[in-house]
Design a protein around this nucleic acid. Structure first.
Length: 575
RNA sequence: CGGGAUGUAGCGCAGCCCGGUAGCGCGCUUCGUUCGGGACGAAGAGGCCGCAAGUUCGAAUCUUGUCAUCCCGACCA
């Protein structure tokens, strides 16, 4: 490929609506172009990176005996009605009607299609286990896409589905998939991706992991214990609370005029939020019924855990006078009947704390759960905090980071095989439901994520395994006949040797050429110029500036190939 | 779905308050001089000012509506 023929203008400045580095660089470098909200076209360099990643995904899936298949993007609504998700999923699932008025959906994930494909083909236990996967377009009508390719509505995804006849076999395969994912991220040049425990969300199932690339622009919050290696999405992280024992005091109602927030009340009563009880109000989405969470004043509610506990979607409450509660003075004692109340474990071991009295301008001091409220159920509902206690090793070592979810793996169980009636005949002549796992990686998000953590001010620094090209030949002063002749030859020789090479043969100033080359992020660069030819050499350097050498213009191919192989080897897993 | 903002040339922006048929920088075309980290000069091309109604002799500019996009939040296999 010659840069002179490459479609796509590279910009000096990023468009105004770019908010993160990877997005700005991928737009500036003409990798992608926005078509609409959360929908992008790819120019050649972007498409080549996607293809490289897809090939790595394909090789790694094949390595764990995956069978590549393809499901449709557009599916009949009836297929999704079988699993129940046609109705249970919100408007992220894009529904529409065909010319006959039949409900159709755009595939946002393909469990239904996978079961539909497999259920008639695998009727005997002897046909298990197997895994099928595809690399294909998904569409999710995200309420808010953002950050270029980090979160889009249309995207390419590798999704894999495995089918098993026992939980043990699923777990065996799940471990293989886990290792496969580690290999994939290493090969894509981001070995620092970590697996974290996650909440299973709408996918169902129990055990799941998300693969996270830690970066400040990440949308997920990750809880990590550097001491023992515990890692979890904060949605799924346990919050261990320790309360210092203190003297039990009598319950006392105190006048706290106008003191509504925890901070105000604690200042007013000269105590610390750690000795108080906070009420957080929610309403169920289905009927707006009130749910109150009580927890220690300094903690925050983990809403995912709350949803899982009460089995309903909730939103922050909009308090109205007819609810019969006094916002700002809500406490566990003396609440009106008929409100769902849940208590966080943090309250259980508090001997004496401040809480609302359910009466305007009054709080209680010296409250004790066991004495003043009797037997109540406690649940773990608080968010883990920086410096908090690790649920595994017990040290005060918890750190909180941001991460981008670049992949995930789920143990689905029989949710889909049961609802869609996929059965096989087992060796004991009984019909059973296969147990499923599913495994996803978003290609575009991975590209953006790699760019986000592998770039400098001038552009991306693509790992050689996914770079659009391995080598860029830059001909400086290509109007010089000698430069033109040598650069053409370098390009041809490398191409013939099977090297992925792009050649900037434009007669432009060095500054523009180098800037464009930086934006293309090709990991190795060969500069042909009158200056270098004068000393009988080609300049050979890496994009990340870690390497620089001279090449012999008459004999350079082997050296270039050796360097490429060395760089690939550095990103190849050992096992 | 709440809150905020913006739509003027491929990109970045000015003009709008105070109506008179559009301007700057980058990029693009041609010629010349330059050219190892985004060069200079000269001459050009490119826009029914998001769309639609209204007010007006006249609308990028005022009014209303509508669509789109972005940011924050809610939401998110």
């Amino acid at each position: 490929m010659k840069v002179s023929a490459l479609l796509g203008e590279r910009f000096k400045k990023a468009p105004a609506d770019c908010t993160i580095d990877s997005q700005a660089l991928m737009v500036r470098g003409a990798y992608i172009k926005s078509v609409g909200t959360g929908v992008f076209s790819f120019f050649m360099p972007g498409k080549r990176i996607a293809k490289k990643i897809e090939n790595i995904l394909r090789e790694e899936m094949d390595r764990i005996d995956g069978q590549e298949v393809m499901f449709p993007v557009v599916m009949p609504g009836t297929l999704w009605q079988e699993s129940g998700r046609f109705n249970s999923i919100g408007s992220e699932l894009l529904r529409f009607k065909d010319r006959n008025g039949v409900d159709m959906v755009l595939g946002m994930t393909h469990e239904e299609a996978a079961v539909q494909l497999a259920r008639d083909a695998a009727k005997s236990y002897t046909q298990f286990p197997f895994m099928i996967y595809q690399i294909q377009t998904k569409f999710r009508d995200e309420p808010r896409s953002r950050g270029g390719l980090i979160r889009t509505r249309e995207f390419t995804m590798k999704d894999a589905y495995s089918f098993h006849t026992s939980q043990e076999d699923l777990e065996r395969y799940y471990a293989l998939a886990y290792r496969s994912y580690e290999r994939i991220f290493t090969r894509c040049g981001v070995p620092e991706v970590v697996a974290v425990k996650s909440d299973s969300g709408m996918m169902g199932g129990r055990i799941s992991h998300e693969f996270m690339l830690l970066t400040d622009i990440g949308e997920d919050t990750i809880v990590i214990c550097p001491e023992c290696g515990y890692r979890s999405n904060s949605e799924a992280a346990d919050c261990i609370v320790h309360n210092e024992p203190c003297a039990i005091e009598p319950l006392e109602e105190v006048h706290t005029p106008g003191q509504k927030t925890i901070e105000e009340v604690c200042n007013f009563l000269h105590t610390d939020p750690i000795n108080s009880c906070k009420a957080v109000l929610y309403q169920r989405n289905m009927d707006d019924s009130l749910v109150i969470v009580f927890l220690r004043g300094d903690l925050e509610v983990n809403e995912t855990k709350l949803r899982n506990l009460i089995g309903a979607e909730v939103h922050a409450a909009n308090v109205t006078p007819d609810m019969g509660i006094c916002a700002g003075f809500i406490g566990p004692k003396g609440l009106p009947e008929g409100i769902t109340v849940v208590y966080d474990e943090s309250l259980k071991t508090m001997n004496s704390f401040v809480a609302g009295a359910n009466k305007v301008d009054y709080h209680y001091k010296g409250m004790n759960m066991a004495r003043d409220l009797g037997e109540v159920e406690y649940a773990s509902l608080a968010k883990a905090t920086e410096g908090g206690i690790c649920p595994v090793c017990g040290k005060h070592s918890i750190t909180i980071s941001r991460g981008i979810e670049v992949g995930n793996i789920f143990q689905l169980g029989t949710k889909y095989t049961e609802s869609m009636n996929m059965q096989y005949l087992d060796s004991d002549n009984t019909l059973k439901y296969p147990i499923m796992g599913c495994y996803g990686i978003g290609v575009g998000r991975l590209i953006a994520s790699v760019c986000q953590v592998r770039h400098d001010d001038n552009g991306p620094i693509w790992p050689i395994t996914i770079a659009p090209w391995q080598v860029e030949v830059c001909a400086l002063k290509v109007g010089d006949e000698n430069v033109r002749r040598v650069a053409d030859k370098v390009y041809d020789d490398l191409k013939k040797a099977g090297v992925e090479v792009i050649y900037d043969d434009r007669n432009i100033s060095a500054g523009v050429m180098f800037s464009d080359a930086d934006l293309l992020g090709v990991p190795l660069r060969i500069v042909v110029s009158p200056r270098s030819l004068e000393r009988g050499a080609l300049e050979f350097a890496s994009r990340d500036k870690s390497f620089k050498a001279d090449l012999n213009p008459d004999n350079f191919v082997d050296e270039v190939k050796a360097k490429i192989n060395e760089m690939i080897a550095a990103l190849t897993p050992e096992d």
